[in-house]
Design a protein around this nucleic acid. Structure first.
Lengths: 341, 341
DNA sequence: CTGTTAGCGCGTTCAA
DNA sequence: TTGAACGCGCTAACAG
């Protein structure tokens, strides 16, 4: 391994000078710089990241903490972060939290041990107070897909209510007046907001959604049955209690597809008999049949933005620390909603 | 930040003793160890990874290099690696290569600068000779989803030929004699092997696949059209030239679904009119309709195994360096193949 | 069993 | 504009 000393020796200068050249900082004579640079290239010298991080107390590392990585939504967060980090020659370290709050905190500690100042944390259930405290200590810590009022400028989130309204408006425009909602977990902020959005959107047109049309279990049922099983049972229950609906709004694309499958298995067809609208616009929304009309969650862009924000927050002239960072969803029209006007 | 010296001072011992306690190595008196451990806990001391890596010339880091992370197949590699790494208290660093050979090499360098000895590299197109040389230099470098004879013990790969045979045998058993194959890129080793497998499997039963039934473009068409477009055009072409087939084998699940969609759009139904069989068994294979019969690629297990192997290769008593690491695919029966006996 | 000493490779003073 | 000296936090010899 070639060190800064090796380069210095060969170049006939001091290590400090080499250091200045490498970092492009400080005063170095033009000729001297050129010579040193040449030798750096020839010798293939690359600074030791660990030594750097040790002495400067900061590493060129962006930490990304998500529940898992094999799900495309979370993979997209890592992907967006990597894309943006790469521009600044930063690297990405990914940690799985499995939605466990303690694991999230532990991941943060672990990242800090690596001298990582820039952290993108996807925490759905972490205690706001605790997270706020953490944010206080770590200037480069930002939160993705969550809004916490006390640390709003650190949150990159999506306007879920607008997403719900978008779905509602679209359905209304297509003639739907009887709408059902299948959601998942009432502990989850997003879910509640999306439901509110749908309700508000429809209410604005004078349309009401009866409570029995909203499947929003507080129990453990969904987890026991799995997404597919839960959606099937929810659809069945909707029919069993005689709910009246021409369209179903689901929490996300995965559930939308599960709902379509359930419908399909019952001999119904989408969108002829029932329309379905999803949320997220993952790849599967394009490739399922019927292709899914859905509310787009610009997660890659959000992850890129989050990374940029984090990087800015730890730079000399931080930017964005006094703003909020709200992204707006958009509707992507495909073939799962029928115009019944 | 609390350092090893702080702990030493409070505990009234030397830093070395604290170090021994932390690492659980070397001789330390029972009482002494307990006391130090207690203070470590109280003070919340956590060793500085960078200092460690600097002096010991190795970091507790597993590097994962894949083309991208938002695709579930690659996300699964990162996921499996993280799962296994976590057990050894290692962390995972993910780098995107975008299938660019230079970027792969650069990613390796970057990982090494971080003191990372354990690298899982997914390289489809990298030059074998160059990769072999790299493997020589880096004992903990392993390759996933690729077989290179000259460095076989470093390769964790799947028996694609067997996968093809599995598909063939299954189709034969279900009465299919006329099979078509839609593949993608003839530069790709996997694709060729899978096709060979299908051919061999069928040939063993005395069934031949005419060349016109095999769509295997060497041009850029697939890239221009995208997966969906390419599959649609391939299906159309198959019909246009009057190819005779009751089943289609595709390179992977994504293409299988695209093919089913194309068929669907042409008014055909799967599996009634045509059977389809995929490869990989990603999540989408379960949730598409009809649910996809496919050849399972145990990628998470393979990534876990790769990580374990890499870790072992850099340990005191390396294991597995003289073996090969071949995984076998299995068939997952769902609803996209019809029994036409 | 425990402490002392000497770096790991680098950035950052401070002089020159 | 350059160089010398110091120390980041830790582990690895070596003494004791």
């Amino acid at each position: 391994m070639v060190t800064i000393k090796d380069v210095a020796r060969v170049a006939g200068v001091s290590p400090s000078t080499v250091s200045r050249v490498v970092r492009g900082q400080g005063k170095v004579g033009k000729k001297c710089r050129a010579k040193v640079q040449k030798i750096i290239n020839e010798m293939g010298y690359r600074p030791n990241t660990n030594a750097r991080a040790l002495v400067s107390r900061r590493s060129e590392l962006v930490g990304v903490i998500t529940p898992v990585l094999h799900k495309p939504f979370f993979g997209s967060i890592a992907h967006g972060a990597e894309r943006e980090a790469r521009k600044e020659r930063f690297r990405v370290m990914t940690l799985n939290s499995l939605n466990d709050t303690d694991a999230e905190l532990d991941a943060v500690s672990s990242l800090r041990e690596h001298g990582c100042q820039n952290i993108i944390l996807h925490s759905k259930y972490g205690d706001e107070e605790k997270l706020a405290e953490l944010a206080e200590q770590i200037p480069g810590l930002v939160f993705i897909s969550r809004f916490m009022p006390s640390i709003a400028p650190r949150c990159i989130w999506l306007d879920n209510v607008s997403g719900g309204r978008l779905a509602a408006d679209y359905l209304y425009k297509k003639g739907h007046r009887d709408v059902a909602i299948i959601s998942f977990n009432s502990q989850n902020q997003d879910q509640e907001e999306r439901i509110q959005g749908v309700k508000q959107g429809l209410a604005g047109k004078g349309v009401n959604i009866p409570d029995e049309n909203i499947m929003f279990p507080i129990n453990e049922k969904p987890h026991k049955l799995g997404i597919q099983g839960y959606c099937a049972s929810a659809v069945a229950e909707l029919y069993a209690k005689g709910a009246k609906f021409t369209a179903i709004v689901t929490y996300n694309d995965e559930m939308a597809i599960a709902v379509m499958n359930a419908l399909f298995d019952m001999g119904k067809s989408v969108p002829e008999d029932v329309s379905v609208i999803g949320f997220d616009d993952l790849d599967i929304a394009k490739i399922c049949r019927p292709a899914l009309t859905t509310i787009r969650y610009p997660i890659v862009e959000m992850a890129e933005y989050a990374t940029k924000l984090s990087l800015s927050l730890t730079s000399k002239e931080p930017e964005g620390f006094e703003r909020t960072h709200l992204f707006m969803p958009t509707i992507v029209e495909r073939n799962s909603v029928k115009d019944i006007n």
